[in-house]
Design a protein around this nucleic acid. Structure first.
Length: 419
DNA sequence: AAGTCGGGGCT
DNA sequence: AGCCCAGACTT
């Protein structure tokens, strides 16, 4: 076992020169690679957790424009923070980011810690992200092992270990960290090596040794070392557990409107889509009559009701099959004083007390114009089909900025060795 | 070890 | 329709 590891490390040591030679000519110019400051690397890495590079880029630009420093993040109003994260998913990432920013301000005087050990103590920073920050921003030899690196690694050595198992990931972290430290000893002059090494591995995983279909081995600088390629078995790796099926949930979404504004409801601070704004919705499939009486129960006096198209939204472990009703009422003001279910009332009151936002919120409800819904309320994509009916585009703000900053791609030169 | 937590793009 | 993505956290 132990001797195996020594053998693996010695074998993999040989790929380092090929990797480092390949990287400068093939790296993508990504915004967070221009000036790899700790804060920038941190934000980018958290956004990139389970999220594609192309998706992240506009979010990253806008986030740093609005919150250029750790201090700005630490004191950002939560509603604004969630709006900046709207549509990118896994919203606890944003909340943890702010929690960690407050710790960095209070404990570390506004300066990100530089060791993996210290970084790991911050909420939202796990093994991968801690290694990425300490290597890319601080030049420390910590292997950042993500899905890309695991795919490249298991193919390189025909490792049949299941990459869902923590022990497999830990094993590769140890192997690559050993490889990095040995190389660093032989070439101690290059301080940017750790960041370059990690990013080069991920770059190969993202652009060459790709999932879903055949990898581009003819373009791979590591193909000569790759056992899977040698045996034409690239597609056999990595091995993953089969995922269990999603739970299907039927929901009915209500688009309550007075012709000018719509009703939004704030979700619980815990669980799915925590703290986000939503269109009021109920489990199950409501008939026209049931939808009407629901609106009345909320204190409204419906004038008209019409069915909306069915819609589906797929989460990681749940699937919503939605049906919708649009209910027109003379006024929505009654929602503000009525319509709260007893169970949700205490929680909602506690939440509104907890984060003062300045928005027109009363209890867990808000009345929003199209303009306000697009610019002030963070609403998850799950409701986009029904928001569209009301003329609301959930990510309108992001699209706007995407156009404005379409041309000036940040990287020109001067960001070579990735530091 | 298994479950929770989003959304989108590609096969 | 299924897969996976620069994963982390809770139980």
């Amino acid at each position: 076992m132990n001797s195996d590891r020594i053998t693996e490390t010695a074998y993999l040591q040989r790929i380092v020169p090929a990797l480092l030679e390949w990287y400068p000519g093939h790296r993508r110019d990504l915004p967070w690679r221009v000036h790899p400051l700790p804060y920038y690397v941190w934000i980018s890495e958290v956004m990139l957790q389970q999220t594609r590079v192309e998706t992240v880029i506009p979010y990253y630009r806008r986030f740093l424009k609005e919150l250029p420093s750790v201090g700005d993040l630490a004191c950002c109003p939560p509603e604004k923070l969630m709006k900046l994260w709207e549509g990118i998913g896994y919203y606890s990432r944003a909340r943890n980011l702010q929690k960690a920013a407050k710790v960095v301000m209070e404990v570390y005087g506004g300066c990100m810690p530089d060791t993996k050990e210290e970084l790991l103590k911050l909420p939202g920073i796990g093994s991968y992200t801690a290694s990425a920050i300490s290597s890319i921003a601080y030049g420390r030899c910590e292997a950042a092992v993500d899905g890309n690196v695991l795919r490249v690694s298991t193919r390189l050595l025909e490792d049949s270990g299941c990459i869902d198992e923590p022990k497999v990931k830990k094993r590769w972290e140890k192997i690559w960290t050993a490889v990095m430290r040995q190389y660093q000893e032989s070439c101690p002059e290059k301080g940017s090596f750790p960041g370059t090494f990690n990013q080069a591995m991920m770059e190969i995983g993202a652009t060459v040794c790709v999932p879903g279909g055949a990898p581009a081995c003819s373009r791979c600088p590591l193909s000569a070392f790759c056992l899977a390629h040698l045996h034409e078995g690239e597609l056999l790796y990595p091995v993953r557990k089969t995922k269990r099926p999603r739970r299907v949930e039927k929901r009915t979404v209500l688009l309550l409107t007075d012709g000018g504004r719509i009703a939004l409801r704030k979700r619980s601070g815990k669980g799915l889509l925590a703290g986000m704004w939503e269109l009021p919705n109920e489990e199950g499939t409501l008939t026209r009559e049931e939808a009407l009486s629901y609106a009345e129960k909320l204190g409204l006096s419906p004038l008209r009701i019409r069915p909306l198209p069915h819609a589906r939204h797929v989460f990681t472990h749940i699937e919503w099959e939605m049906t919708g009703w649009q209910v027109l009422a003379e006024t929505l003001e009654d929602l503000k004083t009525c319509g709260m279910e007893p169970a949700g009332q205490a929680a909602a009151a506690a939440e509104t007390a907890a984060d003062r936002t300045g928005l027109s919120v009363s209890g867990a409800w808000a009345l929003a114009s199209v303009q306000q819904a697009e610019t002030q309320y963070a609403i998850p994509a799950a409701f986009s089909a029904y928001l569209k009916v009301a003329g609301i585009r959930p990510k309108a703000m992001l699209q706007r900025e995407r156009k404005e900053s379409a041309v000036p791609e940040a990287g020109y030169e001067g960001s070579h060795g990735s530091r």
